[in-house]
Amino acid sequence: MSEIVNILLAVLYLLVFPGFLFLFFYGLFCEYFDRKLYARMQNRVGPPLFQPFADFVKLLAKEDIIPEKADKGMFSIVPLFAFAGVLTAILYIPIWRTDAVLSFEGDLVVVLFLLTIPSFALFFAGWHSTNLFSQIGAVRTVTQLFGYEIPFFFACLAPALIMGTWSISGILSQTVIRPEVLILLILAFIIAVISLQAKLERVPFDAPEAETEIAGGSLVEYTGRRLAIFRLMFNIKMVICAALITALFLGGPVLFPAVPGPEFIGYLLGFVVFLLKTLFVVFLLTMMRTVFARVRIDQLLKFCYGWLIPLSIVQFLLLILVRSMGWFA
């Protein structure tokens, strides 16, 4: 009996909450939120609430074209592959309380790994489209990956270092015990948000898909439902990355100070706090997109190696110093 319940629960987690269904709607909402803010900051109207959903449905109905010279298998499987990758990651991220659905020592690394899958998927998608622009985009995707991934890893591992655990849920429970440590992580938070922008390939780091340069990069040949899946994947990736950053640097669904009361109210409150915090991260990302111009791919690499990586090393040294001196313990 309890086994069946467990299985049902797992299916529920994966497909409904916090899995596919929740991410689907929240991802679309985040796209709306991003676009609306972007528009408002540009003194425009912006899309109505259901625009992203309408776009998604419209794309599903569109004709599906595979280029004659493309590798058909790769071309069709890659979007699903990327999609599955990001979906899995949510299970390890705490959403309504301090522990996630699944967790084990080292799940932080798994999540970071799962979040790189979309970039590789983009590379394969672009490369196997055999279009010149998409191939240039694919090469840029990978080039960019080497730029942002190192500072992003460093920044995300910083909380693990100071909290002494490699599990996201563990980090979060430690945060509840000693929230003052988060002050030490401000630098890591900034680095994480900046490299996240590069990871999500948004202005100013959108060279791999730069519309005015290479006509959309890797996805230039994608149409119809495959493009819809890719776009949904990007939205969900944004949500998950924002959730990860929330969990690592902003205390996830925890509200300081904790409110006494029955458990489920705590969960509900935690969920609302989680939503607000992720929206705050999305707001930061939108802000960056609004006020900057696109940098070239070489400038991005220079920026990553010249600024972000040294800064994240500085952050690491600081944390090691703090730990060895036993402060904030």
Partner: peptide, 17 residues
């Protein structure tokens, strides 16, 4: 990010459209 103040200010302004 020198356009930040201008952009942020317009969050509460009426649209030009």
């Amino acid at each position: 990010g020198s356009m930040f103040p201008e952009a942020f200010r317009h969050l509460w302004k009426k649209r030009a459209t």
